[in-house]
Design a binder for these strands. Sequence first.
DNA 1: TCTTCCTTTGACTTTGTTTGACTTTTATAT
DNA 2: ATATAAAAGTCAAACAAAGTCAAAGGAAGA
Lengths: 141, 141
Amino acid sequence: MKKSLADRIEQYIKVLIARSEENQIIIQRLELAETFCCVPSQVTYVIGTRFTEKTGYSTESRRGGKGYIRISMMDDEEISSDLSKRELIVFIDKLLAAKLLSKNEEELIKNIILHSSQNMSSDQRIQLYNSIRFALDDFIR
Amino acid sequence: MKKSLADRIEQYIKVLIARSEENQIIIQRLELAETFCCVPSQVTYVIGTRFTEKTGYSTESRRGGKGYIRISMMDDEEISSDLSKRELIVFIDKLLAAKLLSKNEEELIKNIILHSSQNMSSDQRIQLYNSIRFALDDFIR
DNA sequence: TCTTCCTTTGACTTTGTTTGACTTTTATAT
DNA sequence: ATATAAAAGTCAAACAAAGTCAAAGGAAGA
């Protein structure tokens, strides 16, 4: 199956990260773009769609001379899991405030979140929260 | 009895799957349509009528450039997670019928169930369904 | 024949990717 | 300090798929 450019760049970056010591790499956007014979913003696109907090990565960059982009796998998953949980709860509270969810619905979901958190690995939790978040987005639309 | 186009496409896909390593194939809708000299949505129709969860297949696709459709035969784990999903849905329907859940609540939860199926392993799914089940028990009490 | 269900088709929608022109930030040389 | 050059960021347009939906067609049974 033919992979898209974005997919190939994604894979490439992931291999680099896997090979790295600290689960993080520092690249130069232009350099990577040249490796793949594409425009630099393609790299930005890949990072923006595939290396997000949602997918367990964090990035940091600097412009100008000696600029760079650092991509790291979030290591303390526990923290990020709690983070996305807090975010999700905040989000649900907002929905409640905006009357997009009833009090009952809000309680129901929080109940699910609470119960689900029990027996899941942090990894699973992140995915669950994302799914619920997604489902809510979908639901209120 | 003359075979319909849909039947022939179905056969074709099944042969491809049978020949594949992982009991799954990745196709491009347009390509397959061209192979059979038909409109792309014909392929969608075949997949929608012959390669469903009920018949033991799961599918996944991506639009846009280099898009694809993946069709896989569900393994035992997937089948059982699908089964627990059905059971859960039956349960939710009962709650709705018993007026223990509102229509909105029912939809919301089904939404979560639906979305969660997307990015989780069947293992995770079963856990999630159990959690939802617990949360519901708790909620209606 | 009539009805019903399945199939076929195509116009339109949505989603995801690629590209490039333009902007902003930063280090370095003057 | 200032100017310059070397990065990365932004954004929207063009393109490339797959999805949706409803209408039209066709076959098989009552």
